[in-house]
Amino acid sequence: MEPLRIHEGLVYPLNRTNVDTDQIIPKQFLKRIERQGFGQFLFYNWRFHDDGEPREDFSLNDDKYKGASILVAGENFGCGSSREHAPWALEDYGFKVIIAPSFADIFYNNCFKNGLLPVTLNEETIQQLIKKAETERYEVTVNLEAQTVQDSEGMQESFDISSYQKEMLLNGWDEIAVTLNEADKIDQYEQNIVKY
């Protein structure tokens, strides 16, 4: 996994609440057995007509958001299915950071395994970011080390993140390797399991 420390990028505003993982990556694309290549299917039913033509009424298709790498959305982002294909699709499309007032638990955890940073900010700040990004080309800098989001006009907000998840992302660690360092403790636990 690629480490993530500071990311500066273009904001794409998705002013919707309860965006579920069925919308992020519809089920017809879950049949692949690889981890890569899901970006082309991101938000598929919102982005494309049945014949595969891009929908003009979905703003991600707008040229002004080309190259966006920071997605800002409404509360409870990533709810529903546990499919890790959702962060795979977001990451493969080019997103590095997702900012929302709240996230669904499974999606939130899945992000960290894929070098994607979920940032929780208050509703008021989110609405300001969305308004800005809807009206102009808007870039922000997300600093994981300092736990801040800032823009060139002096906006600066801090966010909370657990130290464990922060370390994982900062270092791009392989979690399984970390756990296998504790293998003796797992052995010991297994020896003490009580059988009925």
């Binding site: 546990s82 890790e84 399984i176 756990t179 797992i186």
Partner: peptide
Amino acid sequence: FGIGTSEVEHVLATQTIWQQKP
């Protein structure tokens, strides 16, 4: 509880999972 595919791999390899107590 439900887990993502990276966690599936983790459980397959270690029979454990890191969890913050809800």
